[in-house]
Every structure is written in C-alpha cells, then in structure tokens.
Write a protein that binds this DNA or RNA. Sequence first.
DNA 1: GCTGTAACCTGTCGGC
DNA 2: TGCCGACAGGTTACAG
Length: 286
Amino acid sequence: MPELPEVETVRRGLAPVMDAARLIKVEQRRPDLRFPFPKNFAERLAGARITTLGRRAKYLTAPLSTGETLIMHLGMSGRFSVSGATPLAAAAFHFAAPANPAHDHVVFHCDTGATVTFNDPRRFGYMDLADTDTLEMCKHFDTLGPEPLSNHFAGPALHEALSKTRTAVKSALLNQRVVAGVGNIYACEALHAAQLRPDRPGRTINGDEADRLASAVKSVLARAIEAGGSSLRDHAGVDGALGYFQHEFAVYGRAGKPCPRPGCPGVIARMVQTGRSTFYCPDCQF
DNA sequence: GCTGTAACCTGTCGGC
DNA sequence: TGCCGACAGGTTACAG
C-alpha cells in the first residue's frame, strides 16, 4: 500500500545497498508492467552507477552516471526485496515475508554484492527513464503539486487550491496536483485529525480549516514515516518487515468502532467517494 | 475546463 | 472444502 510514508520507508531501506552502487546487470523479465518499459531498458541501466536514491511524491528516483534517472512507482502492490547484502542488512532478512517469485519482474544486480528484486503481483507499478537535467519537467513530475513535508506546502497554498474546486475535500487531497503523495488512507486520517468532514466541497474550507488540514497532513505523514509506514495486505519494507502505523489508525478500516478522540461519543462510519472507501467520524468532523 | 467513472491485474476475504 | 463475488493502497483516459 505504497503511499508517501511507505515509499520513503522503502527508499531508506534500499539506500544502504543502492547508493553509489554500480548496476552490473539488470534482468527485465516481462515487456511491461502498468506501462511498457522504455526501449532498451535493461541495456541502458547496465554499467550505470546510481548516485543517491531519492523520492518525489510516491516515486523512487535513482539518478544514474549516464545522465538519466531511473523512476520507479510501486503502484498498489509493488515491493522490493534485497538479498546478498552485507551481514548487517542480511540479518534483517530473517523477517522476510514470502513473495511469489512468479511476480519478480525486475532484478538489479549491484556491484556491492546486493541483488534488489522488484515484485508486483498486480502490475500497477511501473518504471521509466528520464533525463536527470530536466527531471522535474518529465511527464511523471511536471503536474505534481508540492511535497507535503516541505515548506512549499502550507495552509495558505492548500486554501488557494481548495477554493477553486467543488470536489469533496477528501477527493481533492487525493489529487496529486494539490499535494503530492497523499493517498486514501492518510487523506482519511488527516481529515479526522483536522476535524473536517471528507465530503465538504473544497471551496467551503476556510483559511483556518486549511491551516489545520495542512498541519494534520504533515503530522500524519511524519508519524507514519517514523513508524515505518503502515502494512495492510501488500506492503512491507525491503527487509520484509511490516510497518506499525496501522496500529495508530484513528479511522481507516475502523467502521463501526468508537471514535478514538477523547470525549467524542461518535462511531466511525464508512462511505464511498469516487469509488474509494472513506472512513470518518460523523460526530467530530464538521 | 471540471468532475466522476471505468479500467488496468491479481490476491484476499467473506458468504454461501 | 470449494466456488464466487466484492473489494483493495494509484493513476490515467475518457465521457458527460
């Protein structure tokens, strides 16, 4: 379930074995995932050295010595696993969750001795290559909004974006042009933290409420990263270890259970917005 | 131009 | 136990 915190958790897990590593060989085991791989994908990667693994929204980025950047998206079920790494890293693999090898689609062989495997049963993930110098203008990044944990994302900017739309505020949060990296779970959690009803039209959110919501988004994402992400069915860190943030969910997946806000008598409700489940408390979200 | 919906693919879970 | 349908975290193309 890779939203921003899960992707950041994966980045932190991969960095020790991929930063500054040279890709000796890349195995591309099928012609496409969600989209076709770029032309000569494996050949363009072979021999290249990765500088520093990065992240933009829900994308992992690997700038290469060739002048291109490898862009990777985990989709809904994508995950990485590492083998053959340092003894310290290998110790963590004791906890590795099983993944069906039939869905191992890309294997990176690094000169560090590590083998990094991308597994994605649902194949909603994808990989692409783009020029590093013009990365922000590539088709994946040119429409992305601000990073939620950066100073570019704050109440006034969010208020400005929401004021232009009649779309429900929760759906607006999922719009990557408004803020990049928020997905279904953390949108629900942030709206509960900010005490805002998910189905309020965006244009009805005032400045103070936008301030609260922006702060809640930052807080929820930061705590989730700290907890190593959340683990529902499909997500695990590169060592297979599960994140812990799902234990802190206030509303997501808790329909019918009491609202955890102190003093609130409400019961968490579920509704469907644009085909996605939304969880909220009818008693303390207005 | 804005908005909502369907589609992509597979695994899991609950009901029968 | 086995089958079937509903549902699932993201993104994008398309119709209204």
